[in-house]
Write a protein that binds this DNA or RNA. Structure first.
Length: 510
RNA sequence: GGCGAUUUAGUGUAGUGGCCUAGCACGCCGCCCUCUCACGGCGGAAACCCGGGUUCGAGUCCCGGAUUCGCUACCA
């Protein structure tokens, strides 16, 4: 069967898009692009109770940030719209009627209280072929009575009539054939008259069929209801065009047990959402990968490898490489603990690949945050400062702690190092060094390193103490790039200023 | 409880019966580099869930058990 590949990502706008959902979207996208197919975004807002304003815009923005392009959807349109389920009521109503007319479904009036009572009374109660005969539904009631209740506006639901005794097969592309007995399925609610909306199961099957979806790639939590979906395709007479199913392993908590949740991020200190999210109801803020300083390519690369691998040791892959190499065969079947530390490693890798010019631009807002006006420095200066320290950062914001001294002279000197390196001879030595340096054409490694180091040896000074004292004076602590890279960029006048300030301010430890 | 899925180092994974004295990466530890801290390079500790079988030979196949995860709503 070689039909056009059409996949969909179908989130519910019940909050910010979860990182697990992002991965599902990514896999759908990779699969679509690899096969020259279409990626559809469908909003599944059939639960009017849980609708959250802003969630839909969030989904669009998050996918766009990550570079997951949508071919058909609410924002980009397409031939099979509308792409939002709450705007497809007429379609669902019509299909519910088809099922009712075929005898594949029936109307049920049982109230929530009555259902609760039934569940209390019977352990493991299930609304199915064994129990529906004693419930209040169109199968047990007089047709005239049913009509009267409907006319009166009594709320009802439509349930799928599942026959017992069948072995339902689901052919999952990464798990193989999964067979389950229809007896354990209950007569799922397909439609609720109260809000004139279908439930997930009905809407999902109808839409996937109408939108000509070829592959349903979704989370493993849907595997148990896949047989129900197969039965639904059959009931509609669509079995021959039923999509292929792919159930992805879940993203699990980094420690403990269970699915990755928002709480884990708060508890362990990492984002669980792609973008910052402010809950409109509570005002609670959840951090996002974007605002935390992750590069979208790093997030994509990291997520792609959580549950899939290219079959060899390749780890760093661009979106295009992921598209080329993705395969369902190399998807794992078991849940993956969310190893967020590796995400920072990926970010480090991608930061190293970024040209210094771009990194410098990303650094400018951070300089401003710290009260430094980047316009006081040349682009070249900022670029070179960034280039000297970027090897040690995992996030753009880390640039500040490593490069701040290029922009602000130290006012404090790390105590421990002062005790270790600053001696009674230090002021005189540094003053003499300044003399030497002032004679040199520049303080670059090429011009200054050999002459200065040779002089230190000649004078038989303690190399570690002298150089670290200089570092202390210029940087404020014993850390950072090579000393002469620093002095070159700072230039002699600034070095002289900092050394003299240090000599004046640092007390010689006893 | 029922049903389904799942199982290689702490974590993500490679491995499709002999090439596995089980590879890679993150993390961890050590060494080197060195004026310092990083980076980097080099090295190290660390795993086939358990029990049976099949086979000349099993991480790889079969059976049983256990584990973990999911589902079990008028939520998706």
């Amino acid at each position: 069967m070689d039909r056009e590949v059409r996949v969909r990502f179908a989130p519910s706008p019940t909050g910010p898009l979860h990182i697990g959902g992002v991965r599902t979207a990514l896999y759908n996208y990779l699969f679509a692009r690899q096969n020259g197919g279409k990626m559809i975004l469908r909003i599944e807002d059939t639960d009017s109770q849980r609708f959250v304003p802003g969630a839909e815009a969030y989904i669009n923005e998050a996918l766009a940030w990550l570079g997951i392009e949508i071919d058909e959807g609410i924002a980009q349109g397409g031939p099979y719209g509308p792409y939002k389920q709450s705007e497809r009521r007429d379609i669902y109503r019509e299909h519910v009627k088809t099922l009712l007319d075929n005898g594949k479904a029936y109307i049920a009036f049982d109230t929530p209280a009555e259902l609760d009572a039934a569940r209390q009374a019977t352990p493991n109660f299930q609304y199915d072929s064994h129990t529906r005969g004693r419930m209040r539904n169109s199968l047990t009631m007089d047709p005239a009575e049913v009509q009267r209740l409907i006319d009166e506006g009594t709320p009802y639901v439509v349930r799928f009539k599942i026959d017992a005794g069948r072995a339902v097969e689901v052919n999952d592309l990464i798990r193989g054939k999964v067979t389950i007995k229809s007896d354990i399925l209950d007569d799922k609610v397909l439609y609720k008259s109260a809000d004139d909306l279908p439930t997930y199961h009905l809407a999902n099957i109808v839409d996937d069929h109408l939108m000509k979806i070829s592959h349903v790639i979704r989370g493993e939590e849907w595997l148990p209801s896949a047989p129900l979906h197969v039965l639904l395709y059959e009931a509609f007479g669509w079995a021959d065009t039923m999509p292929q199913f792919v159930h992805l392993p879940l993203l699990l908590k980094p420690d403990g047990k269970g699915k990755l949740s928002k709480r884990d991020g708060d508890r362990l200190g990492f984002p669980v959402f792609p973008l910052l999210w402010t809950d409109p109801a509570t005002g609670n803020v959840s951090r996002g990968y974007r605002e935390d300083g992750y590069l979208p390519q790093a997030v994509v690369n990291f997520l792609a490898l959580l549950g899939w691998n290219p079959g060899d040791d390749t780890e760093i892959m661009s979106m295009q490489e992921l598209i080329n190499r993705f395969s369902l065969e190399h998807c794992s079947r078991s849940g993956a603990k969310f190893a967020y530390e590796k995400g920072t490693w990926f970010n480090h890798q991608y930061l190293q690949m970024l040209p210094d010019e771009e990194l410098a631009e990303l650094f400018k807002p951070i300089l401003r945050e710290h009260g430094v006006n980047p316009d006081d420095f040349s682009d070249d200066y900022i670029r070179r400062a960034v280039g000297l320290v970027k090897g040690r950062i995992n996030f753009v914001r880390d640039l500040w702690q490593h490069a701040a001294f290029f922009f602000v002279a130290p006012t404090e000197y790390e105590e421990k190092s002062v005790r270790k390196r600053w001696t009674a001879e230090t002021p005189a030595q540094l003053t003499e060094m300044l003399q030497w340096m002032s004679q040199l054409p520049s303080l670059s490694p090429a011009d200054a390193e050999t002459p200065v180091l040779d002089k230190i040896k000649e004078r038989q000074w303690h190399m570690g103490n002298v150089m670290n004292a200089l570092r202390l004076a210029v940087v404020g602590e014993c850390k950072g790039p090579h000393m002469f890279e620093i002095t070159e960029l700072l230039g002699y006048p600034e070095v002289e200023r900092r050394v003299n300030t240090a000599i004046k301010n640092i007390q010689i430890p006893d």
